[in-house]
């Protein structure tokens, strides 16, 4: 019997012995089990990882095509949204402006107002007129006051059937009666534009001892009967005497931002606040059964 045959017989015998022991449950060879797992597990883990990675790579390439398509869609969506955003911003700004006008309209109960859109500006070198989109067909007449939420804008200079020209208060040609709003002053004067620009107005024809100081708010006096009283014109920025020293005049910073005029309101009819107080009194008397004149 050769040496190889002897070794083979011994190996088979050991294998059977181990098998018999295993079947009888008397030995599970835990040391061998642990050794094999100790060696195999990391390798197995790596293999699984590689397999998973391979799956990821497959997924990646599969997703790439989809992503490119999605990217295109998203880009176009971004463009659409960006455009919509700009539109929204514009609508929001318009909404803000109109809300301010509406608020003003609700607060100024003594004024009958008609909203108009500015459709033309900068016609000539003296930028003191603007065109609005309502005219005589809408009941607009010359000399009506034009306001926005900030205050007096100007007066109607010329009407056309479907448009009107507004002479801005900043024009040297535009003159309006002004009064200091402060209760213990009530100095009156004539307000007009200085140079057609939108920076400064001037209030003149005031006595040299007139009680007017920097920071005073000037509103329309309404004395001429053409415009309602109490429309805000601006704030006094400087007070000085004229060249002869007999009269006082003041520089006024207008409250209206003339560079950003887009919507205005025309005062088509009005009731001065003093009349309102009177009519309120009458209403109260009527409620309490008193006589009404």
């Amino acid at each position: 019997m050769s040496k190889k045959s002897v070794l083979a017989v011994i190996a088979v015998a050991i294998a059977f012995l181990l098998l018999a022991l295993a079947i009888q449950g008397r030995a599970r060879l835990p040391w061998l089990d642990r050794a094999i797992v100790a060696i195999a597990a990391p390798v197995n883990e790596k293999l699984v990882a590689v397999s998973n990675n391979a799956d990821s790579i497959r997924d990646f390439f599969a997703a790439l095509t989809t992503m490119q398509e999605e990217n295109k869609k998203l880009k176009s969506e971004v463009e659409t949204l960006r455009y919509a955003n700009i539109q929204m911003a514009e609508i929001w700004a318009e909404n803000q402006r109109l809300s301010n006008l509406l608020q003003y309209k609700n607060e100024a109960k003594n004024l009958k107002l008609q909203t108009a859109k500015v459709i033309g500006k900068n016609i000539g070198d003296i930028k003191d007129t603007v065109l609005i989109n309502i005219g005589s067909n809408a009941g607009i007449r010359e000399n009506m006051a034009v306001v926005n939420a900030s205050g007096l804008v100007g007066i109607i200079d010329e009407t056309y059937p479907d448009a009107s020209r507004v002479l801005l208060i900043t024009s040297p040609r535009c003159k309006a009666g002004g009064i200091v709003m402060r209760a213990n002053s009530r100095v009156v004067g004539v307000v007009n534009g200085l140079a057609g620009g939108d920076a400064v107005l001037q209030m003149s024809n005031m006595a040299r001892d007139a009680d007017i100081v920097e920071g005073d708010i000037i509103v329309t006096s309404g004395f001429g009967g053409n415009h309602p009283s109490g429309l805000v014109i601006g704030t006094v920025s400087e007070v000085s005497l004229n060249v002869g020293g007999l009269l006082k005049h003041a520089k006024i910073v207008p409250t209206v931002d003339f560079g950003r005029l887009e919507e205005v309101m025309v005062v088509t009819d009005y009731q001065n606040p003093s009349n309102l107080i009177k009519s309120d009194k009458d209403a109260n008397k009527q409620q309490s059964g008193g006589p009404v004149k």
Binding site: V118, I119, K121, N122, I123, G259, R260, E262
Partner: peptide
């Protein structure tokens, strides 16, 4: 050109350069 000049403010709002 006249229309363009007078409506420039609406085409480029926010500034007063015409």
């Amino acid at each position: 050109l006249l229309s363009l000049q007078t409506s420039w403010f609406a085409l480029f709002p926010g500034n007063n350069l015409t």
